[in-house]
């Protein structure tokens, strides 16, 4: 038992590799049941009048790409399918550039034109101060240019969108991996004073925290983590990475559960012996 407790951790690493790679190559196709959170989020977006302008806050970067990028893509598909317009921006360095080529592809699929049906205002530093400025004057907040330095005045969509307020936006969807994000910026600066509805696409690691904001009505709905993204992909009808990830995710969770149980059995067995 002692030997089992002191096993070189690299063996555990190897098992993780084998489980994840193995199940990705030979998926078992576990059934995906739509949860109440993803359904509510989907219904809210579906309920927007066609042509609504929606803010996509890309508040994550490469580190959380695995969880949030599939969510962004499913939501972008749904919005373009419904003929809604998208304004992309964010406070996280790299984030907006990360999603740019993917959204460009989806826009092409639905025949949407950059600058007319959607725009990428790019990453903007300053965290909450940027967001606050965006609620006053988007043009000033972005120094008058989009993410590649093109003047905003040259894009038709920006003629009808002047600030991040309910006057111009029907909804802000925040894909949020931490700070800066929902609790420190969007809730105090966009929701509380302006009551612009917020929808939160969050990493699994923040679900427990963001449930407070959902319960308090500060966000209208939540897409929780990869499982939520998988359900969302199913709802929108664009199966992608999140759905494909649920089998290995499940086995990973099962493996960690078994390790916790084994570790505790070992602990109590050896503790008894030591005593």
């Amino acid at each position: 038992m002692e030997a089992l407790m002191n096993i070189d951790r690299r063996w555990l690493f190897l098992v993780v590799f084998v489980i994840v790679f193995g199940i990705l190559i030979h998926p078992i196709g576990l059934p995906i049941v739509i949860g109440p959170d993803a359904q509510k989020a989907y219904d809210y977006v579906q309920g927007l009048p066609a042509g609504s302008v929606v803010w996509l806050g890309i508040e994550f970067n490469q580190s959380s790409k695995g969880e949030l990028l599939p969510m962004v893509l499913a939501v972008a598909n749904q919005l373009f399918k419904n003929n809604d317009k998208i304004v992309v921006s964010g406070m996280w360095q790299y984030g907006t550039e990360l999603v740019q080529p993917y959204i460009e592809n989806i826009a092409q699929k639905y025949g949407k034109q950059y600058g007319v049906d959607w725009i990428n205002l790019g990453w903007r530093p300053g965290n909450a101060t940027f967001l606050h400025q965006a609620t006053q004057d988007l043009n000033a907040a972005c120094a008058g240019v989009d993410h590649t330095g093109q003047p905003l005045s040259s894009f038709p969509i920006m003629q009808s969108v002047k600030a991040l307020t309910p006057d111009y936006f029907k909804l802000a969807i925040v894909f949020d991996a931490g700070t800066p994000g929902l609790p420190d910026a969007y809730i105090p600066i966009v929701y509380e004073p302006l009551h612009l509805p917020l929808l939160d696409g969050t990493i699994q690691m923040s679900v427990q925290e963001n449930k407070n904001y959902l319960q308090a009505g500060q966000i209208v709905a939540m897409i929780p983590g990869s499982a939520g993204a998988a359900q969302y992909e199913k709802l929108v009808g664009v199966p992608g990475q999140a759905l494909a990830s649920q089998d290995p995710l499940s086995l990973g969770a099962l493996f960690v559960t078994l390790l916790v149980i084994l570790g505790n059995i070992g602990y109590f067995a050896t503790r008894g012996k030591k005593a």
Partner: peptide
Amino acid sequence: NTVLYRYNLFIDR
């Protein structure tokens, strides 16, 4: 939730 999140990042890779 953290376990699920970290696994998902590895699955992405």
